[in-house]
Amino acid sequence: MEKEKHHIVPYKIYFYILIALITFTFMSIGITKVNLHEYSVLGAMIFATLKSILVLTWFMHLKFDQPFLRFMVGFVFLVFLAVIFITFLDYYYR
């Protein structure tokens, strides 16, 4: 087996991540209070994406895992986005 360096993440890092996540949560609430019309969804989704990246990299340890796992996660998200995009080709132009 490859020398699996089991990386032990210090508690304080997890705590910093939590603080960042909560901050992003409040920022996403804030941005939807401002009247941005159709862009408010975009704003909220950007913060949700940032939060999910934090959860994936730190809480779910992707940062310390083998690269192919990161590749797979990215691949799955891209496939999903492509499916949504293609579905919208129907609804947007109907």
Binding site: I86, L89, D90, Y91, Y92, Y93, R94
Partner: peptide
Amino acid sequence: SGMSGTAQYTF
């Protein structure tokens, strides 16, 4: 089924 033309030729 009544999809949009764009979707039809893409598919």
